[in-house]
Simulated scan of single mutants.
Amino acid sequence: MNALLDFTFPCAWKAEILPARPVILPARHFVYPRDVEEVERGALEVLVRTDEPGTSPFLATCALGFRDPVVPTGVWSAPNPQELCAVAGGYTYIIDTSAPERFTMLPYRPVLEVRPVVDQRLLLFVGHRGILAWGVAGEAWETKKLSDEGVTITSIEGGMLRGLGWNLITDKETPFTLDLQSGEQVR
């Protein structure tokens, strides 16, 4: 599993992707989602150390979604410095590193692309039919359906995101433009 580390946003933690689950687990071990059977199919194992004094490292075991090189696997910093975004075969988890029992599993299964947008302080998650944006305070917005099967971001500039979505009826790529503040389609 080729895993990516992306620290575009400043973060209050350090992460190390482990090649396998350690034989001896650390005292703090969290499984995402909780008590899930999917972990038996495979998992992304991430050792996380926070900048908070007196806290010990924890192991984040993130259930693997798909074993396909098309879907991302890795760790991204998030707009909120306390949050860590772990993606395991397209399954996406936002983990509060100051309280690792608090997490959000994104509804897109799979996420096909993760794109940081520093100017807007957003982490974008592209799925088959739409885009979800994560900001400093959590989910910022989610688009309506942009495509019947496959969303492509072509550019991001001036607070606007331009992309293409495939239309089943016309069998063509249809362009769209989104306002990055609201997620609303402007064209």
Rank of each mutant, 00 (worst) to 15 (best):
V114N: 03
R41K: 14
E37D: 10
L168R: 12
W141S: 13
P33C: 06
D6N: 14
P53T: 12
A43T: 00
S147N: 04
K144D: 12
R121I: 04
V186R: 02
I153N: 12
T154Q: 09
M1R: 12
A140P: 03
Y32Q: 03
D148P: 01
L122S: 05
A43S: 08
V87F: 00
T154W: 10
T154F: 10
V46K: 02
C85W: 02
V36T: 15
V31N: 02
P57V: 01
H29W: 05
L5Q: 14
D51V: 09
V75G: 00
E37H: 06
E45W: 05
V151N: 05
T154P: 06
G130Q: 10
T92Y: 01
T152L: 15
V126E: 09
T50Y: 07
E139Y: 04
V70D: 14
P10N: 13
L47M: 01
P33G: 06
G54N: 12
V87I: 15
P26T: 03
G150F: 03
L112N: 14
G74N: 07
E173K: 02
S98H: 15
I95S: 01
G135P: 00
W76L: 06
V36K: 03
T143R: 07
I94Q: 00
H29N: 09
A20D: 09
T73D: 09
G89K: 08
P69C: 13
P81M: 06
E149H: 03
P81C: 06
L164T: 02
P33I: 06
L124F: 11
L18K: 02
T55M: 12
P175R: 08
R34W: 05
K144N: 10
R121Q: 15
G42S: 13
